[in-house]
Amino acid sequence: MGKVTAKSPIAVRVAALAICAGVGALLARAVLAIPETEPGLAPLVDANLAVSGVKNAVTAVLLNFRGYDTLLEIAVLVLATIGVLSLSVTQTGTWDPIAAQADPVLSALARFLAPVMILVSGYLLWAGEHAPGGAFQAGSVLGAAGVLLALSGYARPIWVSRFALRAAISVGFVVFLATAIGEMLAGGLLLEYPADLAKTLMLVVETWLTVSIGAILISLFIASASPAEELRRRSGGGE
């Protein structure tokens, strides 16, 4: 076990400083030259907001106008999770609650907070339609609730089945894809929401995304936590 040196050799630092100075100067010049008259796409988004199915402009961009970005972004999340699982020692993301000591204060806190967090998550999901919020915010809170439960030793029953875990991780992406393909089969284009169903479909997709994002965040936490536990067990420490 070696300790990593804190700093690079002086030659490396001088070279890095020169590069950074160059990039910094280029950037500063460029951002100051950005014209303050270019309206961007804001007028176009405004003009189409009424037919987008939601009232919040950012949500409309994320889910409808540029829903394809969001579809790929969910792919990134699922992909990263598979990557993290492939690197974890157990490779399943199942939680061995070795660290989850039954701390009475922590467990009382978790029992009190978890339901509130799930409620907040539901609110954020619903609020995304007209205000800042949506599946990612909701999923993050749900994920945080899961991490809290995992830390206080409650998480094990959630991940009893490996298939259930895989299903929870991928369901958001799969439902999103299924909706997109369904729209194509119904005669539209990829991610072309029929105006009358737009709101409903987006809510369905968002709901399943919330579930998946929550599950993904919990898995990322649990899967990356296990190698250290493994290491500690192997070297005879811990417990």
Binding site: I34, P35, E36, T37, E38, P39, G40, L41, A42, V45, A57, V58, A60, V61, L62, R66, D69, T70, E73, F136
Partner: peptide, 18 residues
């Protein structure tokens, strides 16, 4: 926020979220 006005341009916000 480069143009000003009451509401910022939603597109960069969506890009940041992504």
């Amino acid at each position: 926020r480069r143009v000003g006005g009451p509401v910022p341009d939603p597109l960069p916000h969506a890009m940041v979220l992504t």
